[in-house]
């Protein structure tokens, strides 16, 4: 059974039809990626699933339950967390306060353990726990954003462009962390411009073009697909 099922969703920005009948699903334990060029509607799709945007029509079901029209702060409680594009950490709050905010919906007694767990995974964050988050480097900020999203203990973690603006070595590191999180049982929905990297770790992928799904397959199939190679992988 699919964990997340998106069917025929249409989203508008004013009069602009940004998402045109997109359907896809994510199964328990998978890494699924949405790839596509700038403006294809990848982020809009994630923002819609997470409740920040409301679709005009279509259905979104999480674990068999419709979540269309549920506001973002309640969707998190269902078990879906979004690590947004551009990281959007709270730059005036300290590293630790950012992590605490990630666990906002959870009982206070569990927070300390979860923070210790995040510090185990991201030792850099532990070194800087008292620092104001705005002073972190780009890579550290991305780790903080991912750690913060994990603090709600999501069943499904949505990542929007986690590699954006990072040096190649950091990109590799971030992707390793994603695979590792998946192995520990978190289902991942990944949006990336770095199609090569995304497809190489994903179980399945969907290719978006101007608001439509134009192609789908396993990660390996899409990596070897001529049209996909031409458009997104530089030939």
């Amino acid at each position: 059974m699919s964990m997340l099922k998106v069917e025929d969703v249409n989203v508008y920005y004013g009069s602009i039809h940004a998402i045109k009948g997109v359907s896809f699903e994510v199964n328990q334990g998978e890494i699924v990626t949405l790839i596509g060029a700038n403006g294809a509607g990848k982020s809009t799709t994630l923002n819609t699933v997470s409740g920040l945007l409301k679709p005009k029509s279509g259905t979104i079901e999480f674990e068999g339950k419709s979540v269309v029209g549920v506001p973002a702060h309640k969707i998190l409680r269902e078990g879906m967390a979004l690590c947004p594009e551009g990281r959007r950490i709270f730059s005036q709050l300290t590293v630790e306060e950012n992590l605490q905010m990630g666990a906002y919906t959870r009982p206070n007694s569990e927070i300390a353990d979860s923070i210790a767990d995040i510090y185990d995974r991201f030792p850099r964050l532990k070194e800087r726990y008292k620092q104001v988050a705005g002073t972190l480097s780009g890579g550290e900020q991305q780790m903080l954003a991912m750690g913060r999203a994990l603090m709600s203990k999501p069943k499904l973690l949505m990542l929007d462009e986690p590699s954006m603006g990072l040096a190649p070595i950091l990109v590799e590191q971030i992707f390793e962390i994603i695979v590792e999180m998946n192995k520990r049982g978190t289902t991942i929905l990944l949006v990336e411009q770095n199609a090569q990297m995304a497809l190489s770790i994903a179980h399945r992928g969907y290719v978006l073009e101007t608001g439509r799904v134009v192609s789908t397959g396993t990660g390996a199939e899409l990596l070897n697909d001529d049209a996909v190679r031409k458009a997104y992988l530089g030939g």
């Binding site: 702060h73 309640k74 998190l76 947004p84 959007r88 709270f90 730059s91 905010m101 990630g102 709600s152």
Partner: peptide, 10 residues
């Protein structure tokens, strides 16, 4: 600081 991100925290 960021209403959207705050919403995503629940």
């Amino acid at each position: 600081e960021d209403k959207g991100a705050a919403q995503l925290m629940g």
